[in-house]
Design a protein around this nucleic acid. Structure first.
Length: 595
DNA sequence: TCCAGGGGCGCG
DNA sequence: AAAGCGCGCCCCTGGA
């Protein structure tokens, strides 16, 4: 059953129960719309959640518009339906292509911008790029505006009841109602998990982070100056180039000019290119770039702006990537460099259970393509070793680069060379990605296993294709057409794999959060705010990897549940097809100690 | 003074 | 242009 939350003009909230088939629920009893004041909502939600035989699907226009305030009040819900996310999927899915929802003109739902966690409406005008540069006032990655359990804003979207009806009809009339239902449920569960992870935050030891920075960069400098290790390297760079003290190593044009003058022979400042060059400037320059990156991206300024009260919080953007992966906004949460992961530490008496899915994408491809040979190669735990064991390729490294090339569209080097052998050994899996590539090259769309569909190429792509037509077309027009066609083919090739892997990961995380909630609360443990203060809970999610913060006594049980969740995710997607999804799981004090 | 874009690198 | 997918975010530059 759905419980739809609708904001009324008076500021009150109306709860309307809707059966899963779109009708009126037959457990009439207490049903009928219920109107509550916003302040009373958490208690009402809690009550419904506790008294229902099967937990209802809380249905709202945007999870972040409602759920953060519930969490702040200590209320957690089991299931949700995020209308905004669901609509985005249904509008473009080929499975629901004929539905009224998909064929209708764009409306306010399509124009909706996601609400950041904390509930404040997104006011894009407030978001401005950085206004200070590194050495005048110090880097300032800007935290989001907002925060606090703001009342839902007044720019109400159209009626959520109407929208739910349209979505239910679109799914029911689709060519894959089961798949779409699972996809929408998983996407919505992801939205709940994302809000919960924002609420809980990732445990972050400021003192440990500071110690790392001080060791690598030297003490924190006063504003406007480089850290001493960086400054020393700048001096060495200038010396190696015989350049004046005015040479600013942060200025690429300056640096390239000085390097050209010194006869270094580099065309760019990319790391891989510098590494090929034999010149005294290379070593200090590479080290400078390395430390500079740490200083600017994850230095003291980052720490000040993104870590509060021992927790790092980012805005997870569910479905922020076209393929269905999440992105994040704030703090570069999905790019935390290994060098600072030591700072992620469990609270005293707690542990971090870190799990990642081994070779997720090729395994997903095996399931997608129903390639039993490839699935069997993965049965032993190391898919690449399994591929070697079939005799398809001689080494694990070749198996790995070959599979990556197949999924990304690589054609050159070792990965291109082993492709024919992989195609012979695994015709179904290789055939599936090849078909996806051909479809993209023609300008077509492809879909993930559960029905998320790729966007069609844009106007520039169309123009490039038609530009190559006709006798008068310039030769480079044909080149452009071919290269953009191939490029789009690489995108669609990867879309089916990356997107289905994201679906597996959503099912995994959905299962994990449900299982964790079923574990016993720890009587004497206290970590962070309710409702997770005494319970194991998710604190980080990175495409194919999760971190759970758990009372130490529950470490083994959590690890077990995380593994069971992976099995469940595999079943949800691929039923009895014998593809396995093994995990690497570690219970550690510090994130740096995993794997 | 503002801001889009280039170059670069972190993560999966 | 590394050899190919998907991102966020840093700095600086240079034109408006």
């Amino acid at each position: 059953m759905h419980v739809v939350l609708a904001r009324e003009p008076a500021g009150t909230v109306r709860l309307v129960r809707v059966a899963d088939d779109g009708g009126t629920p037959d457990d009439a009893g207490a049903s009928g719309p219920q109107v509550v004041a916003p302040d009373d909502l958490p208690a009402v939600v809690q009550d419904v959640e506790a008294s229902s035989a099967a937990p209802p699907r809380w249905t709202w226009e945007d999870t972040n518009r409602w759920y953060p305030a519930l969490l702040t009040a200590g209320v957690r819900v089991e299931r949700g339906h995020d209308l905004r996310l669901a609509r985005r999927i249904l509008r473009s899915s080929v499975l629901a292509a004929g539905s009224a929802l998909a064929t209708g003109a764009p409306d306010d739902w399509d124009a909706m911008t996601p609400t950041p966690p904390g509930g404040a409406p997104a006011t894009s005008a407030l978001r401005r790029p950085q206004e200070e540069s590194l050495f005048d006032l110090g880097t300032a990655p800007r935290p989001r505006a907002g925060g606090g359990a703001a009342a839902p804003s007044s720019d109400a979207p159209p009626d959520p009841l109407v929208e739910l009806g349209a979505q239910t009809a679109a799914v029911a009339g689709s060519t894959g109602p089961g798949r779409l239902r699972l996809l929408l449920a998983a996407e919505s569960a992801g939205a709940l998990a994302a809000a919960e992870m924002h609420h809980a935050g990732l445990p972050w030891r400021t003192d440990v982070h500071d110690a790392i920075l001080t060791e690598v960069l030297g003490p924190r400098p006063v504003e406007g100056r480089r850290p001493e290790k960086l400054e020393a390297l700048a001096v060495r760079i200038r010396a190696a180039l015989d350049a004046p003290a005015t040479l600013n190593p942060d200025s690429h044009p300056d640096l390239l000019r000085a390097m050209e003058y010194a006869g270094v022979g580099a065309r760019s400042l990319r790391k891989w290119e510098l590494e090929k060059i034999d010149h005294p400037v290379v070593a200090p320059l590479l080290e400078y770039k390395n430390l500079y990156r740490l200083y600017t991206a994850n230095g003291w300024s980052w720490l000040e702006h993104w870590v509060r009260d021992g927790r790092f919080r980012t805005d997870y953007v569910v479905g922020g990537v076209v393929t269905g992966r999440w992105s994040s906004s704030g703090g570069g949460a999905l790019q935390l460099p290994r060098s600072v992961r030591r700072s992620v530490q469990a609270d005293p008496g707690w542990v971090l259970v870190v799990a990642d899915a081994a070779q997720l994408e090729p395994r997903v491809l095996a399931g997608l393509a129903a390639d039993e040979t490839m699935a069997a190669a993965g049965a032993g735990g190391d898919l690449y070793a399994g591929i070697v064991a079939t005799g398809a390729v001689p080494t694990r490294e070749l198996a790995k680069v070959g599979m990556l090339g197949a999924m990304y569209g690589g054609t050159t080097g070792a990965s291109g060379q082993v492709l024919p052998r992989l195609s012979r050994a695994f015709p179904r899996a290789m055939g599936l990605v090849e078909d996806a590539a051909r479809t993209g090259e023609r300008g077509g769309v492809v879909s993930t296993w559960l029905g998320r569909t790729s966007p069609p190429p844009g106007q520039a792509w169309d123009a490039a294709q038609s530009g190559a037509l006709g006798d008068g077309a310039a030769p480079d027009a044909a080149t452009l057409a071919r290269s953009s066609a191939r490029s789009w083919g690489r995108f669609t090739r990867n879309f089916v794999v990356q997107g289905t892997a994201a679906e597996w990961a959503l099912c995994w995380i959905a299962s994990i959060r449900r299982r964790l909630w079923d574990l016993p609360a720890a009587a004497d443990a206290n970590s962070g705010p309710a409702p997770f203060a005494d319970r194991a809970h998710l604190v980080f999610f990175l495409h194919d990897e999760v971190v759970v913060h758990a009372p130490a006594a529950l470490a083994e049980e959590v690890a077990h549940q995380v593994r069971e969740a992976a099995v469940e995710a595999g079943r949800l997607l691929f039923g009895d097809f014998p593809v396995s999804f093994p995990l690497t799981v570690a219970a550690v004090d510090s994130y740096a100690d995993a794997k």
